[in-house]
């Protein structure tokens, strides 16, 4: 009798546990490190509101694509959008989730954030190893009022493949023919110079640690690590600082409606106040998911993020997708993601 009672209690308890697990969904995703800060912030708020949790592994864009192709996660996240053909081949649906800016960061004694001004050609020459010292004529010309040291520039770049690298090298390719010919744009390229560090945080750490260095990181990482970002001269020839307004100005040019798979690269956009290295980060999900419930849970989270996550995104200096675009994306969900 005693045993029987205990077993009954155990069964009830087990049912309760299983029951609550079924009620509170866990959404699994993996990919880009660039949007990790905002995804985790959204996830916290979403869990408080609905009880559903998000398990997002920030393992890098390429790895995120691999994970979704292996169907180990419900959604993949990438900063390097897949082209329409690739999406079709795997039966994937893609849309942009949030946008952000990539900034050059430097570690120079006496130089404050935003003081140093660079343009695309100069930045490319630094990363090509053609500009070796901080007091090079090309840098001095852009910064006549700054006292620049005659020290060697330590170039810091990513050692792993990365969507941030893809957008950064895409910008350099557009700004410098030399870069386009010699290096090109990809998530991992043949770097002519520099030391490699792993992840946005690795580059941030290396620049913080190394005097006279330069690196590139997503803006949130620069801000969180209190790094010295530079200003940029954009395509229109105007000086701009990395602000939400400048990122938004660049994003406003994108023609999302006519881009299959929302394939849009936002670097080197026209416009007087556009920040030149702006990027969107994308979500990948299956059009015909095997686990329909999980797919629906994930879409529910993204829908919530579009309607309630804008303020949180701006707090972290990401740019929310404009209303017109989220409307398009919602239509895409209904039409292409068959999880009902």
């Amino acid at each position: 009798m005693q045993l029987n009672l205990m077993m009954r209690v155990a069964v009830v308890a087990a049912t309760a546990v299983v029951g609550s697990a079924a009620n509170a969904a866990e959404i699994t995703g993996a990919g880009a490190t660039f949007p990790f800060p905002i995804y985790s912030k959204w996830a916290d708020a979403y869990k408080k509101e609905t009880g559903d949790s998000l398990n997002y592994q920030s393992i890098g864009s390429g790895a995120g694509i691999k994970q979704i192709q292996a169907k180990t996660v419900t959604f993949g996240a990438t900063d390097m959008p897949l082209k329409a053909e690739a999406l079709k081949k795997d039966g994937l649906v893609q849309w942009p989730m949030v946008m952000g800016g990539i900034v050059a960061v430097v570690n120079l004694d006496g130089i404050k954030p935003g003081e140093l001004m660079l343009d695309g050609g100069t930045l490319a020459d630094i990363y090509l190893g053609k500009i070796k010292k901080w007091d090079d004529e090309a840098i001095k010309k852009l910064n006549p009022s700054l006292a620049l040291p005659s020290t060697a520039i330590t170039v810091v770049r990513r050692s792993d493949g990365s969507g941030t690298t893809f957008n950064f090298t895409d910008y350099l390719s557009k700004a410098s023919k030399d870069w386009a010919d010699k290096v090109g744009a990809d998530s991992a390229v043949e770097w002519p110079v520099g030391v490699g560090a792993k992840g946005n945080d690795g580059v941030a750490g290396n620049v913080a640690q190394t005097k006279n260095s330069i690196g590139y990181v997503e803006y949130a990482f620069a801000k969180q690590n209190k790094l010295t970002h530079t200003g940029m001269i954009n395509k229109a020839g105007k000086k701009v600082e990395p602000t939400v307004a400048a990122f938004q100005a660049a994003a406003a040019n994108a023609d999302w409606a006519n881009a299959p798979g929302y394939y849009q690269i936002l670097t080197n956009q026209p416009g007087e106040s556009s920040w030149p290295i702006t990027a969107a980060t994308f979500i990948l999900m299956y059009g015909e998911p095997t686990d329909k419930a999980a797919s629906a849970d994930a879409i529910k989270f993204f829908d919530w993020a579009f309607s309630k996550g804008d303020k949180m995104a701006e707090e972290l200096d990401y740019i929310p997708m404009p209303q017109s675009v989220t409307g398009l994306i919602r239509k895409t969900w209904t039409a292409e993601v068959k999880n009902k």
Partner: peptide, 15 residues
């Protein structure tokens, strides 16, 4: 770089 460092930093994003 060394062999093991190259593998450690590039493997996850390689294909």
């Amino acid at each position: 770089t060394t062999i093991s460092a190259a593998i450690a930093s590039e493997f996850a994003e390689s294909r």
